[in-house]
Amino acid sequence: MELQIDDSVLVKDYINGNEKALEVLINRHNQRISSFIYSKVLDRDVSEDIFQDTFIKVIKTLKKGNYSEEGKFLPWVMRIAHNLVIDHFRRNKRMPMFEGNDDFNIFSVIGDDKLNVEKQLIKDQIDSDLSVLVEELPEDQKEVLVMRIYRDMSFKEISENTGVSINTALGRMRYALINLRKVIEKNNIVLTN
């Protein structure tokens, strides 16, 4: 049978410099204190934070010699935890934490839609590779593709500018894309972000 050292003895040991005694105390009461905190806040992360803050207070009080030993270590720690739980709710009342749900996430509204540096570099590389490939196209196809993609012109505008019918412009665009794909496949070029 394993003999359990009393809390009061462990507290004394800890005050006298035995750091191992604290570990025993924390592990011994971990579940009771954590469950107590969790039953109030119902959030694992907040519960973990309050548990940590509770023992930081315990450690400071014991090391400063401000703890009066009356053989009631656990109720004392529970009282600290209880006060910290109250502090947590007071703080949240003053400054409620907004949490998004499945339908609405605040970060989708305030989020930055710019690409990060890595993705921007990849995009620049792809754009530059693509412009080299476009240069390989026959002149008439290149002309239509540039007008459509880079200048965002409609096929009606392209037709007016090049002096060909809309159908011809559409056909040139189609062949431009087919030829681009062929070059990309032939040279095993990867153009994905």
């Binding site: 924390i26 971990n30 579940q31 204190i33 954590s34 469950s35 107590f36 905190i37 969790y38 039953s39 694992r44 519960s47 973990e48 548990f51 940590q52």
Partner: peptide, 10 residues
Amino acid sequence: CKLAKASPET
């Protein structure tokens, strides 16, 4: 009141 435990990291 569910059983909870602080993590080993804490």
